[in-house]
Simulated scan of single mutants.
Amino acid sequence: MSIEVRSFRPSDAEQAAFVWNSVVEEGDAFPQEETLTVPEAVEFFQSQSYTGVAADTDTGEVLGLYILHPNNVGRCGHIANCSYAVRPDVRGRHVGSLLVADSKETAREKGFRIIQFNAVVATNAPALALYRKMGFSQLGTVPGGFRTKDGRYEDIILHYIVL
C-alpha cells in the first residue's frame, strides 16, 4: 500500500466523515460528542486552516486525516493546533506518523511557529508514543480533564513542539 498525504477535497467528505466519526464514536480521544454528516464534514474540513488526508494511492481510499488551525488568536495566533484521526482498520501501519510529519511541515508553511495539543488523553498510549517519537514535549497534565464515553474522567496531557 502506497500512501500520500494531500489536501482535503469535497469528494473525500464521505470517507473523511467516516474516519472522523469513528474516533468521535469511540469516545476516548476527541472532545466532540456529535458526529458529522457528509455536508457538515465538507463545511468543517474546509473551514480549517488546512485539512490533510492520507489516501491510498492505488485505491483512493481515505485512511486518515488531520485538521490544522490556530490554537488561539492575536498575539498567540502563531501557535497551531492539530487533531488526527486514522481509520480503525489501518491503525498501527504508520498512517499517523505520516499525518503528523505532514502537519508539522504544513504548519511551518502556513507561518505557525509552534504546534500545541490541548487534550491528549492519558490513556491514549499509541498517540502518546507517536508524539514522543515525533519530537513533541509534554507540557503538563490536567487531572480529570476528559470525560470518556462511559462517563469516566481521564487526565489530559498537553504537548507542544517548536517548528
Score class of each variant (00 low, 15 high):
136 F>S: 07
53 V>Q: 05
98 L>F: 04
46 Q>C: 12
77 G>R: 07
19 V>N: 10
7 S>R: 09
130 L>K: 02
71 N>H: 12
116 Q>N: 10
46 Q>L: 15
108 R>I: 03
159 H>C: 11
132 R>V: 04
76 C>T: 14
117 F>W: 13
106 T>M: 10
80 A>R: 00
114 I>F: 10
92 G>R: 01
65 L>K: 06
132 R>I: 00
56 D>P: 01
110 K>W: 02
34 E>H: 12
27 G>N: 03
157 I>C: 02
73 V>Q: 14
151 G>K: 04
4 E>V: 13
45 F>T: 08
104 K>P: 00
20 W>N: 08
128 L>G: 03
116 Q>G: 02
118 N>M: 06
97 S>T: 15
34 E>D: 13
141 T>E: 11
105 E>I: 07
90 V>C: 10
127 A>W: 01
16 A>Q: 04
133 K>N: 11
155 D>E: 04
89 D>Q: 13
149 K>R: 11
111 G>S: 05
113 R>D: 08
10 P>E: 11
32 Q>G: 00
79 I>E: 12
14 E>H: 07
109 E>S: 13
143 P>Q: 06
108 R>A: 12
27 G>I: 02
95 V>T: 08
99 L>E: 09
6 R>V: 14
59 T>E: 12
101 A>H: 08
13 A>W: 07
65 L>Y: 12
111 G>V: 04
40 E>G: 09
138 Q>P: 06
93 R>I: 00
158 L>Y: 13
161 I>M: 08
75 R>A: 15
108 R>L: 02
53 V>A: 01
133 K>Y: 02
98 L>I: 06
103 S>Q: 04
154 E>T: 02
1 M>Y: 05
114 I>Y: 12
89 D>T: 14
137 S>F: 10
144 G>P: 02
128 L>W: 00
33 E>D: 14
153 Y>M: 09
81 N>E: 15
63 L>Y: 08
58 D>T: 11
142 V>R: 08
69 H>W: 11
36 L>G: 14
84 Y>P: 06
1 M>I: 02
145 G>T: 10
6 R>C: 10
10 P>T: 02
153 Y>E: 03
63 L>T: 00
50 Y>V: 08
155 D>I: 04
15 Q>P: 07
62 V>D: 11
10 P>C: 13
112 F>N: 05
110 K>E: 11
74 G>T: 07
150 D>M: 14
48 Q>G: 02
17 A>Y: 04
102 D>W: 07
111 G>E: 14
15 Q>R: 10
159 H>G: 05
81 N>F: 01
138 Q>T: 13
71 N>M: 08
93 R>E: 09
17 A>M: 09
109 E>I: 01
133 K>F: 02
75 R>Y: 13
74 G>L: 14
105 E>A: 09
120 V>W: 03
73 V>S: 15
83 S>V: 15
92 G>Q: 04
153 Y>C: 11
157 I>N: 03
93 R>S: 05
34 E>W: 05
37 T>Y: 03
26 E>R: 15
82 C>Q: 00
46 Q>A: 11
144 G>S: 07
129 A>R: 12
9 R>V: 07
2 S>M: 06
37 T>V: 09
10 P>V: 05
115 I>Y: 05
40 E>P: 04
151 G>M: 00
50 Y>T: 09
132 R>E: 15
119 A>P: 00
147 R>G: 01
93 R>M: 14
57 T>R: 08
89 D>L: 00
33 E>G: 13
58 D>C: 01
140 G>V: 04
93 R>Y: 06
129 A>Q: 15
148 T>H: 07
